[in-house]
């Protein structure tokens, strides 16, 4: 049984990390990062089987790929707080000579990252490749992927989605951060995507919803169900219904904070809504 109090505390601390990272360099993507804080905390603390030492090959452990690399602040925070690198290094986010580049990369050797992402639409393909290698290596662990909903407008995703179903890549769980927002506005406004669930189903995936995508209990129980669906001849898609900017009242339900950092006053306001739990870096 998960210690939800500890997980909730971690979520709040991760929110603080996100806000402080982007505030310091006056750049970065807080909205999507905040919306996925609970998902990342659940994934790294309750769902993935992970080895202590990071290796690029990641044999005999579950793997995670972030396709929408712009939500790097939440990825970096959770990686640091999961022991991949010192939390103090969050201080270097987006600074010159940092391993914490604006978008995640293997290029600077940051533990926890297995492929660069940022240019959108490439993560599902890489995840399929990693999942196929796991099968060839007779490694029964899973590959988890997160992509944005707006990101699904990139055509490469649908090449990958078609491939995974057609070739029974069933050791793969792709979660879609369904917050309905992208830079220029709501996804319905920018390029209506219609029924995402029906699209994945039509392509042959096993699709399920997590309606409360910012609720730890819902995420953990939902993702455990998703895990049970693996190994049955179909790739699994989880539609994670989240709120962009979750946990900071003035950032919620809007695309305005997709790629904008808070100013000093806004940071103070946002942090006051999320008081220190585990300690700032």
């Amino acid at each position: 049984m998960a210690d939800y109090k500890a997980l909730e505390d971690l979520v709040i601390q991760v929110r603080r990390d996100i806000l402080r990272q982007v505030h310091k360099v006056n750049s970065g993507h807080p909205g999507g990062s905040l919306g996925c804080a609970e998902f990342f905390v659940a994934l790294y603390n309750e769902l993935m089987e992970r080895n202590d030492d990071f290796t690029m090959d990641g044999k005999n452990e579950d793997l995670f790929f972030l396709s929408n690399g712009h939500i790097s602040p939440v990825f970096y925070s959770v990686l640091a707080r999961s022991g991949y690198f010192p939390v103090e290094e969050l201080n270097t986010f987006r600074l010159l000579n940092s391993r914490l580049q604006g978008h995640p990369t293997t290029h600077e050797g940051l533990p926890g990252i297995r492929i660069a992402s940022g240019s959108l639409g490439q993560g599902i393909s890489a995840s399929i490749g990693a999942a196929l290698t796991k099968k060839l290596n007779k490694d029964t662990h899973l590959v988890y992927t997160l992509c944005g909903d707006g990101e699904l407008q990139e055509g490469q995703n649908w090449e990958a989605i078609m491939y995974a179903a057609g070739n029974k890549v069933d050791n793969l769980i792709v979660s879609v951060d369904l917050n309905g927002q992208q830079i220029d506005g709501s996804t319905d406004h920018v390029l209506p995507m219609g029924n995402v669930k029906a699209k994945f189903e039509a392509f042959g995936w096993d699709v399920m919803d997590i309606e409360k995508g910012n609720d730890l209990k819902a995420i953990i129980s939902g993702m455990k169900k998703a895990k049970e669906k693996t190994g049955n001849g179909k790739p699994v898609c989880v539609l994670l219904h989240t709120v962009m900017g979750n946990g900071v009242d003035f950032m919620m339900h809007t695309h305005a904070w997709h790629g904008k950092a808070p100013n000093d006053q806004q940071l103070e306001d946002a942090l006051s809504q999320n008081p220190v739990t585990l300690g700032d870096y």
């Binding site: 492929i115 393909s125 890489a126 399929i128 490749g129 990693a130 290698t133 796991k134 490469q156 990958a160």
Partner: peptide
């Protein structure tokens, strides 16, 4: 993209 992913695990 798949090829890039397949290298992870030694292929």
């Amino acid at each position: 993209g798949m090829a890039a992913g397949m290298t992870i695990g030694g292929k």
